[in-house]
Amino acid sequence: MTDRAFGVVRAGALTTVQDLGRYGHAHLGVPRSGALDPPALRLANRLVGNPAGAAALETTVTGCAVRPRRPAVVAVTGAPCTVSVDGRPVAWGAAVRVPAGAVLDIGPAVHGLRAYVAFGGGIAVEPVLGSRSTDLLSGLGPAPLRDGEAVPLGPPAGRAAPVDWTPVPSPPAELVLRIRLGPRDDWFGAGALRTLATRGYRVSSASNRIGLRTEGPPLERAVPDELPSEGMVTGAVQVPPDGRPVVFLADHPTTGGYPVVAVVLERDLPAAAQAAPGTPVRFVPVRR
């Protein structure tokens, strides 16, 4: 491997490589995958002068630390956190120069869950089916980061954006998910749909990149039949036998056999990616 790479000093709880995902292979059973918070990934890439969809790191809760072998331009976005270079605090949400051999440390999320770390030139692991994303459901793409490994970087192309301040997101009091009912809302009674729209849920600690699981009042089905497997979209609110809605995120399976009562609007999904366990969730039906 060339020295255009970084070494992993502290991999963190779960740090993966993510870009905007694999498109066009769902019919083969290949999940979309990609960053759970795409606006944060795009911003990080813009800050370092990369194309918006270049591959970057997605950290989970505890951050990570890496040591670039050559001088690198990096930017951290997504969940607010402390960022330091060889122990000295540097800016979050701005392009930062990291000297060769210095340790870039991304601290634990102050709030939110996932930070994005873009490197000028992007992460250059071998793409699989057109994407460098780690897909935790099907195991495509690179494995999650491990302490001590080296991760290749691409040659820097663009110029870092002259931005010296990015608004830090404030912690959301609750996660509001606007939904459109269907395709299988008719598998639930009026009571269940009222429960979904009016009762409070909370983000379950069993949530992951596959789905945001919830705790709260179960939705009772009106149709007890078994649903033949059907195609699933990102944002689908699937209701498994325990009745607690699961919101499908990037690594969701491409088909499923539990009814989808509603689908979350795409623009509300990045917030779902940052909602910590225990956060109150409200589903708000909107009309077509």
């Binding site: 498109y23 769902a26 019919h27 059907e230 195609g231 699933m232 491409t254 088909t255």
Partner: peptide, 11 residues
């Protein structure tokens, strides 16, 4: 973007 056939449906 995607055409996903299944048992009785196409997404």
């Amino acid at each position: 973007g995607e055409i996903v056939p299944a048992a009785r449906t196409v997404l």
